[in-house]
Nucleic acid binder design. Structure first.
Lengths: 161, 161
DNA sequence: AGGCTGACTTTAGTTAGTCAAAGTCAGAAA
DNA sequence: TTTCTGACTTTGACTAACTAAAGTCAGCCT
């Protein structure tokens, strides 16, 4: 693989973990997926303190995963709700991947499953390529991309630095 | 979004985050995935201290994501290497999902991409169902899977509503 | 006017994760 | 026998993440 110095913060995984790398941040995103939008509901359903909820909602909003949207019901005062942005929705494969992994491997956690509304089948997260092939772990290479159109390839296998 | 709420302690995402919920734990899995097996390599490539490396490798091994395997080269002393187990390999969609998200959304990180060795096409993480349909966020339902023994019901430190 | 409520903020303290640096230890090499 | 090295462990300290509890504030309601 190209010389991606991990310590330099270049790795996208690292960037992503900086945003949703804490338990409560990830669970906050989970709740956003489930449709939770209000402050107190996030607080209660994730099981975190109000201070943590405020901090996480603020950070996730600043990072562009959630959007703070004022709304007003009839006869009620103005309120804010937190809704998923496109960037937040893009995190779905990660959440579902974690869900799958946890359901399969964490003891005693196999109580929940995910289904496709339309057909009722179990949901799975797959790694594929644009060519439509199913990809196995050992078939993945990391490449440096100069821009949208050019890519400099390099095998990733077993050698860093 | 369904109103079935994965109560604290039962959600698979939470379980998974307990195992790989820290920056360094996730990056350690990234390295394992890239083919790193030796202690010092993990330490250096993740950019963590030896103490943290030891703690994370021990925890990930205990959780069954890595396997400690003694090996010996001729004329060299016995050593240990840490290799991915099946459970660790199952985390690949999560890692790649984070990679995709980070490459797409974190600024300054869009220089890396993943490709399928066999055909050179870009890799993507897809959410599908067993019926083969591509699934969109709003089409996901969470369901309770019937299970026999419930863990004494005593785990409700804070129950979500 | 005063109360109530949702949505926070502030304060003060705890726990988890991390680091650098030094120490340990097994065993091959000199 | 002593040294060297890879693979750790230990120590002590710092920081991020978290908590409970109390305080703030806007604004609808009676």
């Amino acid at each position: 693989m190209p010389d991606i110095n991990p310590a330099s913060g270049f790795c996208p995984i690292e960037k992503a973990m900086g945003v949703v790398g804490s338990r409560n941040a990830m669970l906050t995103m989970r709740e956003a997926f489930y449709g939770t939008t209000r402050f107190d509901d996030f607080t209660e359903r994730v099981g975190m303190s109000a201070a943590t909820a405020a901090a996480n909602l603020k950070a996730l909003t600043a990072a562009g995963l959630l959007e703070r949207r004022p709304y007003q019901l009839h006869g009620a005062r103005m309120r804010n709700e937190y809704v998923l942005t496109a960037a937040g929705t893009d995190l779905m494969p990660v959440l579902l991947g974690l869900f799958d992994w946890g359901a399969k491997h964490a003891d005693g956690a196999a109580h929940l499953g995910l289904r496709h509304d339309d057909c009722g089948e179990a949901i799975e997260v797959q790694v594929t390529c644009a060519g439509g092939h199913r990809v196995r772990p050992e078939e993945v290479s990391i490449t440096l991309i100069a821009n949208k159109h050019k890519a400099t390839g390099a095998r990733s296998d077993h050698n860093d630095r």
